[in-house]
Write a protein that binds this DNA or RNA. Structure first.
Lengths: 316, 316
DNA sequence: TTTCCTTTTGAAATTAATTTCATATTGCGC
DNA sequence: GCGCAATATGAAATTAATTTCAAAAGGAAA
C-alpha cells in the first residue's frame, strides 16, 4: 500500500472528495492516481479516523434509546418520542401526536393498512395529519371487542383512517372472540368475513397496539375476554395481547384455544405486512417486552419513559 | 418536499447512511421510502449542515496555503512543504526531501518525464526515493547551461533520475543558448537533437524549477545567458525563466529572439505534459508569481515561507 | 370551482463508486 | 541469488448513487 500510506495524500484526497465535492474520477485525473486507488485511499482514511462524520442530532436521547431497542429485540426500526412536553393533553394524546407524525413516514403512498382496536391505536389514528398521501384500503384486523365503546373498535378506526387518506374502508362484522371454536370456524368461512380477513393478511402495513393481560386490560374490561378466558391465558403464562396473538414472557405465542375462538388475525398471519406496534406506560413494560421478544413486530413506537423501562427489563 | 422537511427522518437516514454504513437501497427498503428520495434526504441534510464532515488534518497550515495558491493562480494543484525542521541540511535539501516525497505521487507508473537543469531540480531528483515505481524514459528539456557544473545539467539529472527508476535516459547534446538564431535552427534540425526535443514535447510529466533573471541567476552566472542577453530580457520586462521560457511580471511570455537561440523547450511546447514547477526562497517571489501567472504551470511545489510571500505579492 | 404555474415524485437512464479478479510485485526465507 | 507467500494493483464487472424526465399534485390567482 505504497500510495495509501502517505497521510498527506490521504488528507488531500479526502479534502477534495468530502469538502470540495469532487468525484473520485476527477481526483483520479487531477492527481494521476487510478480510480480504485482513490476509492481505497478514501476507505482507508475513513477507517483510520482521518475523516470524521458527525450528525448534529437534536434527538440524541431518543435515537440512543431507539438503538438500544433495536439491538435488544432485533427490531427493524424503533421510534422513540419525547412526550415530556405535555401541554394540557393527556400523555397518550401528546405521545400519539408525535408518534403519528413519525410513523406516518413509514406508511407509503398507495399502500393498504390494517388496524387493530384499542386506545393507543385510536389516539394515533386521530393524531395522523391529513397529509397529501393517498392510501388504497384500510382494513380492521379484528372483530368488535364490545357492544359499546365503538370509538375504539378496529372497524371505526379503519373508517376514520380511510377518511383521512381518501381510502376505502372495510368492515369486519363479527365479535372479536366468540364462545365456541366451531362458531368461530363457521364465521371465518362466511364470505363477508373471510374476504376481510384475507385482505387483512395482505396489507402492506399493520398498525397495532400492545395490550396487557390482566383485569385492567381493555379487552377484559369491555368483556371481549371473559374472566375464564383471562384465567386460561394467564395459566399459560400469557402477559401480552397483540391483535389476535397472545405472548408469554419469553415471547412465545400461547392461547391456542382462545386464538381459535378469535375472529381476527394473529401476528403470524400478518407476516407479509410491516407490523408497527405502539405502546406506552409503565404498566405495559412487561407486555411490551413479551410482544417484542416474539420477533413479529417490525417497528416499535413508544415514548422515552417507556423505552427506558423496556430497555432495562430483564428476561426473568 | 413533504418527506424531506422532517428533520427527525433526515437524522435517522443520515445515521443509517453515514454512521452505520447502510446503502441507500437498504435504507429505502427499511423505511419504505424510494431510493431517489433517500438520496435527496441525504443531500438536503448535507446542505443544511445536519451532516458535518471534518478531516483531521495535521497539515492545515500547508493545506491552507495550497488552497490560496491554487485560487490565486488557477493552478491544478499546489504542494506546500513545511521545511522549518532543518536538521543540519541546507534549506534547499530539506525542502527537496519533503517535496520529492509528495511530488513523487504525481508521477505515475510507466510515464515519461522531462527534466530541467538547475539546483532546485537537482535537489529534488537527488531526494527522490528509489520507489518500486518504474518509469519509461527521462528526457532533458534543455541543452547544457555551462561547460562546468555538470551535476546540475538537465542531461545529468535525467540520467540520475533514470537510474533511480530503471528508466532509459536520453541526452541533449547541445548548449542551452547559442549566439545565432540560424545556428539554433540548424541544430534543432539535427536528427539527434530533434528526436530528443520531440520526445520532450511528449513527456507525461515535466519537472522544472523557476529561475530569477538577474546577475545572480544560475544560467547567468554559469554563462549560459550572456550579460547582453540578460539586459535584452530585462528590457522586455522578463523576471522569470522556466525551461526555455521567459516571463514578465504579468506572466506574458517574452524574449522571442533569445528563445529562438535556445536549444530546449518552452512551457508552451510542453502543454501536453503535466508541468510540475518547484521553487523556494524569498528572492524568488517575483519570479514565481510571474511564472505562475503564465498559467502554464500545473502543479507548484514550494515551502511555507515562500508560499506566504507569493500569496501576499501584489501584481504591481 | 377552474386554470396555470410551480413543485414533487419515482422510473429509468446515467454516472459514480466499489468489488472482483487476474496479474504483478515485494519482502522474506532458503 | 531463487522461489514462495503475502500484498498491492488496475481493468473490468458489479453495485450504488444521482440526475433526468415525464407525469402528477399542490397552490395561487382568476
Amino acid at each position: 500500500m505504497g500510495t495509501i500510506r502517505n497521510k498527506r495524500l490521504m488528507v488531500k484526497v479526502c479534502e477534495l472528495y468530502f469538502l470540495q465535492n469532487k468525484s473520485q474520477k476527477e481526483i483520479s485525473a487531477l492527481l494521476g492516481i487510478s480510480r480504485p486507488q482513490i476509492c481505497r485511499i478514501i476507505t482507508t482514511a475513513k477507517d483510520e479516523g482521518i475523516v470524521q462524520i458527525s450528525i448534529s442530532n437534536p434527538y440524541v436521547r431518543e435515537t440512543e434509546l431507539e438503538h438500544l431497542l433495536i439491538q435488544k429485540f432485533g427490531l427493524r426500526d424503533a421510534l422513540v418520542v419525547d412526550s415530556t412536553s405535555i401541554d394540557g393533553e393527556s400523555s397518550l394524546q401528546s405521545f400519539a401526536k408525535e408518534a403519528a407524525k413519525l410513523a406516518g413516514d413509514y406508511i407509503p403512498q398507495d399502500s393498504s393498512v390494517g388496524v387493530m382496536s384499542g386506545y393507543t391505536a385510536k389516539a394515533m389514528i386521530d393524531a395522523l395529519e391529513p397529509s397529501s398521501k393517498k392510501l388504497k384500503l384500510i382494513v380492521p384486523l379484528i372483530g368488535g371487542i364490545s357492544t359499546t365503546n365503538m370509538s375504539i373498535h378496529a372497524d371505526t378506526l379503519a373508517l376514520n383512517m380511510a377518511m383521512l387518506y381518501g381510502a376505502d374502508a372495510w368492515n369486519l362484522n363479527a365479535p372479536a372472540v366468540v364462545s365456541e371454536v366451531s362458531l368461530a370456524k363457521s364465521l371465518k368461512k362466511e364470505e363477508a368475513i373471510a374476504r376481510v380477513l384475507e385482505c387483512g393478511r395482505k396489507t402492506d402495513i399493520a398498525l397495532v397496539g400492545i395490550g396487557n393481560l390482566n383485569e385492567e386490560a381493555t379487552n377484559v374490561r369491555l368483556g371481549s375476554l371473559k374472566k375464564e378466558d383471562l384465567a386460561q391465558l394467564q395459566s399459560q403464562g400469557a402477559v401480552a395481547s397483540v391483535c389476535g396473538s397472545y405472548f408469554d414472557r419469553e415471547g412465545r405465542e400461547v392461547g391456542g384455544e382462545i386464538t381459535a375462538r378469535t375472529i381476527g388475525l394473529t401476528l403470524g398471519e400478518l407476516r407479509r405486512s410491516k407490523i408497527i406496534a405502539a405502546a406506552i406506560g409503565d404498566e405495559k413494560t412487561e407486555a411490551i417486552c413479551a410482544a417484542l421478544r416474539s420477533k413479529k413486530v417490525d417497528i416499535f413506537v413508544t415514548d422515552m419513559e417507556t423505552a427506558k423501562k423496556v430497555v432495562l427489563e430483564d428476561k426473568i
